[in-house]
């Protein structure tokens, strides 16, 4: 049972990292990225390939996976940034599918649908499996906290203020002298880096990845996390990601208490439940459970 909770918490950590990346792109800057799964997959596969096929230390491979996803984010954003918002969203969705289909068909590199096994274990000091899973959770938690600190600094600083201005009205931001393209590309790349790191952490945790792990559904779950938690609020995202994982995973236990539904029905009910919660939140708390905080100048009291 404890092992299961540790696993759930670790998964929640991956979702929290992804949600913070998406929040930077969409919640703060207004760029609709439906290709979350693609950046996640790219991070997972590049991390796995670097550590298993090339033999790089897995810790370094995880960091480099972030760089790889960041480069992909740079290319995608530079190619598409001048598109209208809805077209941009379609392109990102396409990108996600390209990555998945590439992984599915390029056997020589990814083992295709058979799945890529990743024997390398990062942060392994010859520990037992039970202790190792705790260590891994600790590492993921640490990454979540570091990214949280980065995102909070951006959100509360002048940089985040300009991102939110661009989100609200990019024309006016430009007229006021803001280089909208620079801010958008930077925010998109940084969000992609986070997603790539999440992917590589996931790959080295699960130790076996296949393309069907990275269906566009992942993007929907991450969007859920950001919308339910509250876009523009980093605390809200952590809560949102936690809730989504709790529903996805926790509802498995429902089967133990009731015999009315089959396990197949149960897995569909989980998805329905997520949809209902999304609708309820949008109806009653359209800005999320913890909305974007109001700005108060730190200089107010002193003057």
């Amino acid at each position: 049972m404890l092992a299961y909770f540790v696993a759930m918490a670790t998964y929640a950590g991956f979702f929290m990292i992804l949600a913070q990346g998406l929040n930077l792109q969409w919640g703060m800057t207004g760029m609709v990225n439906f290709g979350v799964a693609g950046f996640y997959a790219l991070g997972a596969y590049s991390g796995a390939i670097l550590s298993t096929r090339i033999g790089i230390a897995p810790e370094l491979a995880i960091a480099l996976a972030g760089v790889a996803a960041g480069v992909a984010g740079l290319v995608v954003s530079l190619l598409t940034m001048r598109l209208r918002e809805d077209y941009f969203a379609i392109v990102t969705l396409g990108f996600g599918e390209i990555v998945r289909l590439f992984a599915l068909n390029e056997d020589w590199l990814t083992e295709g649908p058979r799945g890529l096994r990743i024997p390398a274990r990062p942060f392994d000091f010859g520990l037992s499996n039970a202790v190792y899973s705790l260590v891994y959770l600790g590492v993921v938690a640490l990454v979540v906290l570091v990214i949280y600190a980065i995102c909070e600094r951006i959100r509360s600083g002048p940089y985040g203020r300009t991102l939110r201005a661009i989100r609200e009205d990019d024309v006016v931001a430009g007229v006021l002298g803001k280089n909208v393209l620079r801010f958008r590309v930077q925010a998109f790349v940084l969000g992609s880096v986070f997603m790539g790191v999440a992917g590589a952490l996931f790959a080295h945790y699960i130790q076996n990845i296949s393309p069907d792990t990275f269906m566009p559904m992942i993007a929907i779950f991450i969007w859920m996390s950001v919308i339910v938690g509250g876009y523009g609020n980093n605390k809200g995202l952590l809560l949102g990601a936690g809730i989504v994982i709790f529903i996805l995973e926790g509802s498995r236990f429902l089967g133990d208490f009731t015999s009315i539904v089959t396990s197949q029905q149960l897995s569909s009910i989980r998805i329905i439940l997520i949809g209902i919660i999304l609708m309820a939140v949008l109806r009653f708390r359209p800005r999320g459970l913890i909305p974007e905080p109001k700005f108060m100048s730190e200089f107010e009291k002193t003057s």
Binding site: I154, G157, P158, Y159, R161, T162, R164, A165, E168, D169, V171, V172, L176, G177, K178, F183, Q186, E292, K294, F295, S297
Partner: peptide
Amino acid sequence: REFGPLTVLENLLLAPQNQCGERL
């Protein structure tokens, strides 16, 4: 065309150009 979900003060503070806090 104000930035609606930003406060009045924020609308003013974001206007000055090339702030060093706008670079990472």
